[in-house]
């Protein structure tokens, strides 16, 4: 008797028509490839705007050019840029800025991108807080702001900023934008 448990055989792998055997890239929308260098230079321009006090322009610029086609490194860099902008904006200014972006053409798309970054930021600050508390050597990532505060406290602070952005954003863009973060195959 064969000892193979036939219930655990992956029958899809044996079927030439099965989804395991075709190219999945055709299922996702086409995205423009972006190089890490381009993202870096964009981050530089956005920081310039931020230093000039135009945080709204910086946010808009960052949200209009998400590096969907970039590699992990590029996405990391852009995430750090967006988080930096979010942390630089005061709580009282959040809602007015968001409603101005929403009413601009393509605004709903921009706010969906922002929602993606808020969720990614939350996931990120969790893991970074966990990793720093486990091994105390600070790790070099693109995350200067959070790490400079060090340890779990910095993660908590970043989280509270992201949570208040999340609250304001749902007020304007509705739960539809949360659903789009989950459904969208273009990840940031």
């Amino acid at each position: 008797m064969a000892t193979v448990n036939w219930r655990t055989i992956n029958i899809d792998a044996l079927d030439p028509d099965s989804p395991a055997n075709f190219d999945l890239s055709s299922l996702s929308p086409a995205v423009q490839p972006v190089s890490a260098a381009d993202v870096q230079s964009l981050a530089g321009q956005i920081r310039q705007l931020l230093r000039g006090g135009d945080s709204e322009g910086a946010l808009q610029g960052a949200l209009e050019n998400p590096p969907y086609g970039g590699d992990e490194k590029a996405k990391e860099v852009h995430l750090a840029t967006v988080i930096e902008i979010l942390q630089s904006i005061r709580q009282a200014d959040m809602s007015p800025i968001l409603s101005r972006i929403y009413s601009a053409p393509g605004g709903s798309e921009a706010l969906d991108v922002l929602m993606k970054y808020i969720y990614k930021g939350m996931a990120q600050s969790n893991t970074s807080a966990a990793s720093t508390s486990r091994n105390l050597t600070p790790q070099a990532t693109g995350f200067s702001q959070i790490h400079s505060r060090g340890g779990g406290e910095g993660g908590g602070q970043a989280m509270s900023v992201l949570l208040s952005w999340h609250e304001k954003l749902v007020e304007i863009a509705g739960p539809g934008s949360i659903v789009r973060v989950m459904a969208d195959r273009r990840t940031v």
């Binding site: 929308p29 739960p175 659903v179 789009r180 459904a183 969208d184 195959r185 273009r186």
Partner: peptide, 29 residues
Amino acid sequence: FLNNTAGWIHSVAFSPSGNALAFAAHDST
């Protein structure tokens, strides 16, 4: 047809004349 986010489709329908197609996807679009 694919929408921007490639969310999965819940419902499709032709217009009464058949000259347009509407579909609703899980990305709330």
